[in-house]
Each structure stands twice: as structure tokens, then as C-alpha cells.
Simulated assay, not measured.
Amino acid sequence: MMVTTEGTAARIMDVAEALIQQRGYGGFSFDDVAQQVGIRKPSVHHHFRTKSDLVAALAQRYTERFESALAAIDIARRDPLARLKAYVRLFATTYAQDSRLCLCGMLGAEADALPEDVAAAVATFFELNLVWLAAAFRDAQHSGQVTSALRAQALAELLLSTLEGAMVVGRGARGGSGPAAVGKTLLGGLAA
């Protein structure tokens, strides 16, 4: 099911997404969202009954956007290594916005404390990415562009974990290399 929102609901989601990317699930409230959107707190509740409803919708929307971006990469780039490099750029683009973290990466760090519907939406994001990356790595191995003997699934987990971790380390170190440089280094070490 595609998450579509217009007007105020979309602004609420945009603000909440940015807050989560900076502060995490526990680091924002409906009051914070209402203030930044310029509405009253009951108006937020009008669109999203609970925080869990809002964040589950956000994780679903984020996953859908990522799925569209992955489809666009597949269409635009036949070369397997070019697809993997384009994937790295997705994370670099997010991080370039005030050191924002991947929404689902940030939520994934809090997975055990999240409501079940939110945790399930986050798990869907990671599964989508791992399946796509494993296919991309299989293609890169078959073409000879990636020479690692590791299974494609292991390489998928390695790249996704590296990118998510590079975002966290970059923010925590207040200037680490970030996902663009770290992803380039990892792919360079795997390429033929």
C-alpha cells in the first residue's frame, strides 16, 4: 500500500522524519512537530492518532521512496558496479543534509524499544535493501567486477552495515569520512 499524503499531513510527516533522523524515536514529540509545522498539537492527532501511527507511516513512506530509487538505479544503470556506486550515493545524499541519518537506520538502533508496527516497518526497509544489494552483488560477481569469494548476501550485509555505520560514526566523530568515502573505499576493495 502506497503512503500518500497531501497538505498538512505531508508537512507533519516531513517534519517528523527530519526530527527522527536527528534525534531518534524517543527524541521528538507531537508538540515538537506541531511547533515546527505551525499548527496546534490536536491537529497532529487529527492526521495521526498516535506517535506509533505516524512513525510507522513514515517508515513505510521512506521504504517506498527507497524502493523507487532502487528501481530507478536498475533502469538507469546496467553495469552492476555502477548500480552499487549509485546505491552508496543514496546514503551520501541523506547524510549531506545536516548529517542526517537514514530514517530506518536511526529507528533500527531503537528496534527493541519500538512499537511492533514501527519495528515491522523498519524490518521491511532492511529486507528490501538486503535483497536488492544481494542481487546487485551477484551480478557484479558474475560479471567479474567484484572478485570477493564472500556470498552475495554477506556482501549485501557488509555494505549496508558499513553505510549505516559510517553515518553514525561521522556524526559521532563530528566529521568522519561519511558514507560516500567509506562506501567508495569498500567497493574499491571489492572490485577487480
Score class of each variant (00 low, 15 high):
residue 139 D to T: 13
residue 75 I to C: 10
residue 55 V to S: 01
residue 114 L to K: 00
residue 119 A to C: 07
residue 175 G to N: 08
residue 90 L to H: 09
residue 5 T to S: 09
residue 100 R to I: 11
residue 179 P to S: 08
residue 162 T to D: 03
residue 105 G to M: 02
residue 42 P to R: 02
residue 33 V to Q: 00
residue 57 A to M: 11
residue 38 G to C: 04
residue 148 S to V: 10
residue 120 A to C: 01
residue 114 L to V: 07
residue 143 S to T: 15
residue 8 T to C: 05
residue 67 E to A: 13
residue 94 T to M: 12
residue 83 R to F: 05
residue 55 V to F: 08
residue 3 V to P: 13
residue 62 Y to Q: 09
residue 68 S to V: 13
residue 44 V to W: 00
residue 83 R to E: 05
residue 143 S to F: 11
residue 120 A to N: 03
residue 87 Y to C: 06
residue 138 R to G: 05
residue 1 M to H: 06
residue 2 M to T: 15
residue 133 L to M: 08
residue 72 A to K: 14
residue 8 T to W: 03
residue 53 D to M: 02
residue 58 L to M: 09
residue 43 S to L: 06
residue 151 R to V: 08
residue 99 S to A: 10
residue 49 R to M: 09
residue 29 S to N: 08
residue 119 A to E: 04
residue 39 I to F: 06
residue 163 L to R: 02
residue 156 A to Q: 09
residue 185 T to E: 08
residue 184 K to T: 14
residue 102 C to W: 00
residue 50 T to Q: 06
residue 78 R to I: 14
residue 115 P to K: 06
residue 76 A to L: 12
residue 101 L to P: 06
residue 103 L to Y: 07
residue 4 T to A: 11
residue 68 S to L: 11
residue 28 F to N: 00
residue 57 A to I: 05
residue 176 G to H: 09
residue 19 L to D: 04
residue 33 V to L: 02
residue 11 R to E: 15
residue 172 G to Y: 00
residue 127 E to W: 05
residue 40 R to D: 13
residue 168 V to L: 08
residue 149 A to F: 04
residue 56 A to V: 04
residue 164 E to C: 11
residue 2 M to D: 09
residue 47 H to G: 02
residue 128 L to Y: 03
residue 100 R to F: 10
residue 183 G to L: 04
residue 65 R to Q: 15
residue 171 R to F: 02
residue 167 M to R: 01
residue 168 V to Y: 05
residue 108 G to R: 05
residue 118 V to P: 01
residue 160 L to C: 08
residue 110 E to M: 04
residue 68 S to D: 12
residue 69 A to S: 15
residue 178 G to I: 04
residue 139 D to W: 04
residue 45 H to N: 10
residue 137 F to H: 04
residue 8 T to M: 10
residue 178 G to N: 13
residue 15 V to S: 11
residue 18 A to F: 10
residue 95 Y to K: 08
residue 84 L to W: 01
residue 94 T to R: 14
residue 2 M to G: 09
residue 1 M to I: 04
residue 169 V to W: 12
residue 190 L to W: 06
residue 70 L to A: 08
residue 21 Q to C: 13
residue 33 V to S: 00
residue 141 Q to F: 07
residue 87 Y to E: 07
residue 127 E to A: 09
residue 115 P to D: 04
residue 146 V to S: 04
residue 180 A to E: 15
residue 103 L to S: 05
residue 138 R to N: 05
residue 105 G to W: 00
residue 32 D to C: 07
residue 32 D to T: 12
residue 162 T to K: 02
residue 2 M to L: 11
residue 86 A to Q: 14
residue 21 Q to F: 02
residue 67 E to L: 07
residue 58 L to N: 00
residue 153 Q to H: 12
residue 15 V to F: 12
residue 137 F to T: 03
residue 36 Q to F: 03
residue 95 Y to H: 15
residue 81 L to E: 08
residue 183 G to W: 07
residue 125 F to N: 01
residue 107 L to I: 06
residue 62 Y to K: 10
residue 82 A to E: 15
residue 42 P to L: 01
residue 137 F to A: 04
residue 64 E to G: 06
residue 1 M to W: 03
residue 74 D to N: 15
residue 35 Q to K: 14
residue 133 L to W: 05
residue 141 Q to Y: 05
residue 137 F to G: 01
residue 69 A to Y: 10
residue 31 D to A: 14
residue 58 L to R: 00
residue 13 M to F: 10
residue 30 F to Y: 09
residue 82 A to F: 03
residue 118 V to S: 01
residue 162 T to A: 11
residue 23 R to A: 10
residue 116 E to T: 15
